[in-house]
Amino acid sequence: MRNQPKYNFFKNTSYALNGLKDLIQTETSFKIELILTLILLPVIIFIDTTLVYKILMFMSLTGMLIAEAINSAIERVVDLVTLEHHHMAGRAKDVGSTVVFLSIFVFVITWGLILLNIFTNY
């Protein structure tokens, strides 16, 4: 059995908010993607398209933030384990970057196809 404290919703929420605050304060890429998200959220709300398309647009947009958070976590753990250059540490960081790259690719393709569909049907 793991030595783990009992689940507490409010404490766990505060941990998550502390992590978000840290990401905003220390990660430039996360800040850029967060600003992009805040700019594009009203587009999702006001654009004339189906609910399914709006959900896909929202999921692809927030997927970038999730991927960036995962990448930052991977980078921090790797840096905690070793400050020296190690081939496997570099590979782990590269995979984290790939997660971000793929999420941006999904975002661009999703938004591009949906917007193309909207503007070519009118």
Rank of each mutant, 00 (worst) to 15 (best):
I74R: 10
D79N: 15
L80K: 11
L17R: 08
S97L: 04
G112K: 05
T62Q: 02
I44Q: 06
G90N: 11
Y7A: 13
T37M: 13
L38F: 14
V77I: 15
L36I: 15
T50C: 02
L115A: 14
G90K: 11
I39W: 04
I104R: 07
Y7Q: 05
T82G: 04
I114A: 05
L36T: 15
V78P: 01
M64Y: 03
V81R: 09
L20I: 06
L113F: 12
I44D: 07
G63R: 10
E75S: 15
I70T: 07
L83T: 12
L17E: 03
E84Q: 15
L51E: 11
Y7F: 11
S72P: 00
Q4K: 11
M1D: 02
I55P: 01
A69P: 00
L113M: 14
F107M: 08
D22M: 02
N71H: 03
W111E: 03
N3I: 08
F9L: 07
M64A: 11
T120M: 11
F105A: 14
S97W: 01
K31D: 01
L41Q: 07
A69I: 04
Y53I: 02
N3E: 12
T49Y: 08
L40S: 13
H87C: 07
M59F: 14
I45W: 14
Y53M: 10
H85R: 12
H86S: 10
S29P: 00
E33T: 11
V43Q: 07
L36E: 15
K11W: 05
N71K: 12
T110H: 02
A92Q: 03
T82L: 03
W111R: 10
L83D: 13
I39V: 15
L40W: 06
L56P: 00
L116F: 15
I47K: 09
T110P: 00
L40Q: 06
Q4R: 12
L116Y: 13
A73C: 08
T82W: 05
K31T: 04
A92Y: 08
S97E: 04
I39F: 12
G96V: 00
D48C: 05
F119T: 13
A69N: 02
N3V: 10
L56E: 11
I55E: 04
V99N: 02
I45R: 12
A67W: 01
T13Y: 06
A92L: 10
T82D: 08
Y122F: 12
T120V: 14
L65E: 06
T62C: 04
F30S: 04
V52S: 15
F58T: 07
I35S: 09
M57F: 04
L56V: 03
I55G: 08
Y53G: 04
E27I: 03
K21H: 10
V106A: 12
V78E: 05
L102C: 09
A16D: 01
W111D: 03
M59A: 15
W111T: 07
I104A: 11
